[in-house]
Amino acid sequence: MKIFVCEDSLEGIFTGVYDAWAAAGPHTEKRLITGDTWNMELFAEYVTVLPDAKKAEKVIRTLKSRLGYEAYEQLCYAAMSDAIDKADAIYHTIVTAFSMRDSKRVFQNMHDPAVMRCFALGRTVGGEATHHLEFIRFCELENGVLFARCTPKNRITLVLAEHFSDRFPSENFIILNATHHEAVLHAAGEHTYILCDSEALLQEQPGAYSETEELFQDLWKDYFEAMTIEDRRNEKLQRQLFPKRYWKDSVELKDKA
């Protein structure tokens, strides 16, 4: 068994796919893992994969054309997961896809355990990402910068970056992913954003609120309360649709979290 140890990032995992594919031996004798916490196995050969933008780029191009954009996106979501077996599931899904006459149908292959696993991981991550697009809240700081803090289980920072830079092109904003210690910084008028390691950011308070920030928070809280039709009150349903773990970073339900 050959075990490829990849960096836990899109680039790291796709480089791992490249190297594993190129290595000698049958695919069943190869495994991909991420990060640095694993149980050493006897009789296994460990190969450290150094992330390589060129290799990752090649893999991504191939995946997009052979598997189609949707399947590729699904794999990216799987790669953002916090599950320890994700890199291996991705690799073996790709192996399965390439063995099929029509690789674009790979996610219909319900009998393949790796495919099923990727499908499930992708769905979970996609669900969490959508929840974050809906539930994260920005506040306005003194200097006009919008700031949001979130604590996702999976590493979905990239999805948030894409969404909010398209949505708020003329704003300066920061999204802090406190779980993974990274942040999106977006400057007004710039069409790009940077992901940065947020250790530095975490040291500092994000700064005081702007003059009107509390007014708008109060307006929103009051409005939110007023929206409930008492005759239909159903807090179980509310919790089911608006999971409690999002409440602490919200404005309207922070006090109940």
């Binding site: 809906e134 539930f135 939110f224 039709i229 009150r233 159903n234 509310q238």
Partner: peptide
């Protein structure tokens, strides 16, 4: 973006 106390 949010769900009110009636789940709407």
């Amino acid at each position: 973006h949010a769900f009110a106390g009636d789940g709407r």
